Computed example of a mutant assay.
Amino acid sequence: MEYKDYYRILGLERGADQAEIKRAYRKLARKYHPDVSSEKNSEEHFKEVNEAYEVLKDPEKRAAYDRLGAGYQPGQDFHPPPGWDEGFEFHGGGYTNADPEAFSDFFESLFGRGGFSQTYGGRQRRQYNAQGENTYARIAIDLEDSYRGGTRQITLKHPTLGADGRPQLRERTLNVKIPKGITGGQQIRLAGQGEPGMGTGAPGDLYLEISFNPHALYHTEGKTVFLDLPLTPWEIALGAKVQVPTPDGPVKMTIPANSANGKKLRLKGRGIPARQPGDMVIVLQTVTPPANTDAQREAYRQFGEAFEFNPRKTMGG
């Protein structure tokens, strides 16, 4: 996907304030408007200008874009990294004067389908005595937090518009109760922790979407927890009783004889402990020890002679 330099499109420096952004947009919108422009490719330029303005005029979108844009050049291949918006508190952005269908894939990857704007919906219109807006953020916890529950301290960054007309990040720290059994993608609602209301209106709520930090041993799919379990060739062939780590503590497990590499064994109820607990899936992985000494190499030769086995037989080898 091509990286788009919205500042370059509007002819601005990255430190431009909101007044400069608005002036640049108005000038270029007049220049490239398809109804009046005689410029070559005016419609394409007009869409680019609208897209750039849609991002840079909004403090939340601009702060997210600036966070990702450092080090990229126009036209360079770009893919937003996983969890790029973790810890950012958003209202959801929404669209104003531009047609969402006219946006580029680059815009959509950040602020459209799957991005925070579409995930969380558009802005609410603030009125006198109106309820405050809900805010949203994604946070990452350890898998073990889901097994045990408890309280965690988190810090959120909230993009706002400073007095100088430039975006700035305001931080706040909260103590959050992590429910036991929560899964990736679920939300925690913190009542009254969103934006303040207008007049006598109640404050909005804060919704925290949960993801899991990368783990050295496990990965998850919904409530199911997966573990790749390394085994020796003789454990795979002869069977064995081995100790298997789980996020809730080690358990003993029987490996059936003549198991295949990649075979999946299931530990019922050992996955994420939701109301209906998930399972844990153990994926058997054969690990072959190296032959570094004469004795080890001789052992492998004798091993090979003991079997009439050719794994490439079906390939004509």
Rank of each mutant, 00 (worst) to 15 (best):
E89A: 03
I210P: 09
G165Y: 05
Q127T: 12
A295R: 11
G149K: 09
D279I: 02
I272P: 09
K57T: 07
V242I: 14
L56K: 09
L265T: 04
G185T: 10
N258Y: 01
Q193F: 00
N213Q: 13
I272V: 12
I188G: 06
Q127G: 05
K268G: 05
G201D: 07
G185F: 11
P230I: 02
G69D: 13
K180S: 04
E108H: 11
L161N: 05
A291Y: 15
L238F: 03
R148A: 07
K264C: 03
P250Y: 06
A237C: 01
V242N: 05
V242E: 02
E48F: 02
F303R: 14
Q302K: 12
Y128I: 09
I21S: 00
V49E: 00
P80T: 14
M253Q: 14
P233N: 06
E235W: 02
G149L: 08
K47A: 11
Q131R: 15
L227V: 10
Q153A: 10
A306F: 07
F107G: 00
I9A: 05
E308Q: 07
E13W: 02
R26P: 00
T173F: 09
G114E: 12
G165S: 08
F103R: 08
L229G: 03
N41R: 12
N50F: 03
M253K: 08
H158F: 15
Y218Q: 09
P290T: 09
I210S: 08
H91K: 00
R152N: 09
G249M: 04
E101M: 01
I210Q: 07
E48S: 02
A202K: 13
H158E: 15
S211I: 13
Q193Y: 01
L208G: 05
T200R: 14
E48L: 04
T293G: 09
E195G: 04
G249Q: 05
S42P: 06
N41C: 02
R275L: 14
L68Q: 14
S42K: 10
F212V: 11
W84E: 11
G316Q: 04
Q302F: 09
R23I: 06
L206H: 00
M198F: 07
T155W: 15
A98V: 12
V55Q: 11
Q243D: 15
I178M: 07
Y3P: 02
A98S: 08
P203H: 00
G114W: 13
F116Y: 15
A240F: 09
T286Y: 00
G93S: 15
E221M: 09
L267G: 15
S104M: 08
P311S: 01
M198R: 03
G262Y: 07
A64R: 03
S38R: 13
L156G: 01
A274P: 06
E221R: 12
N310R: 08
D205V: 01
R166S: 12
L229Y: 10
Y207L: 08
Y207N: 04
T200W: 13
E144V: 06
